[in-house]
Amino acid sequence: MTWEVGSPLSIISILAVVIVVAAMLIWVERRLLSFWQERLGPNRVGYFGLLQVVADMIKIFYKEDWIPPFADKFGFVLAPAIIMMVILLSFAVVPFAPGVGVIDSNIGVLFMLAMASLGAYSVMLGGLSSNNKYALLGALRATAQMVSYEVFMGISLLGVVALSGSFNLREIVLAQQDGWYVIPQFVGFVIFLIAGIAESHRLPFDIPEAEQEICAGYHTEYSGMKFGMFFVGEYLGLVLISSLITVLFFGGWLGPAFLPPIIWFSIKVFCFIGFFILLRAAVPRPRYDQLMSYGWLVLLPISLINLLVTAAIILSMQ
């Protein structure tokens, strides 16, 4: 078995590593949050509490897996599976390192955006089929938020695509050998970051599940492993967004040669995961209408202007 794109070794290790990392993030997030809140966080199970995830998983497996009698069974069961599936599928196009990846698609960016939008169905279906007013409110919010943030999430990437001349994520990384795109595309980076948070509905944009307002939003009725899937799906989304930011703006696996490429990639991804967790610790949640008007009235025009300016500069340099 060799390390090459699409080899079984590559595929299996990516799947395993991504899921394990996403599960471990539950512990990472709790620990980091508590450090930022002058607490210690879970540190009892295993060294530094590393086995906390195992304990949580055992607990969640033993919980009653309950489907409310008033829910629409089919959609209710399907919804958590969708979010896990689409996010894992998005990892197919992420280039982790030379020779590590699932496919080098020529439409990698489009595939990723499409999969991310499909994630909205999971949330929508989960909220709708729960037949619960909080879940419905959460689903409504999630759908509106995702639809509006999808728009400029795509547009903010077009600057990168224009600069590298490719939709292939691996080629985008290779095109960054002379400099990371975060410098020429700083505006695009900031907008993609914001859209990414909204897309993975992490705090401060966790409006679809805002515990303090609407219970747990779209997954109010979920319990047991189905809830666990939504939960891990959220962390998978976090890993995905961090990997994409790394690939698109921070040169993917590129870095000084004293560390192997995959290590550079992991370091960068973990910096962004840490940043997302810091956002959760520090920034309060905006009001729902603020989020929407901010998206449509500020971020969309800025991303369009960014695209136009980038295009104009590229044309004038030719």
């Binding site: 930022w36 002058e38 956002l279 610790a281 520090a282």
Partner: peptide, 13 residues
């Protein structure tokens, strides 16, 4: 805000 919260990592729990 982000910076101040980040700096808390050095504060003893």
């Amino acid at each position: 805000t982000l910076w101040k919260v980040f700096a808390k990592i050095l504060v003893k729990a």
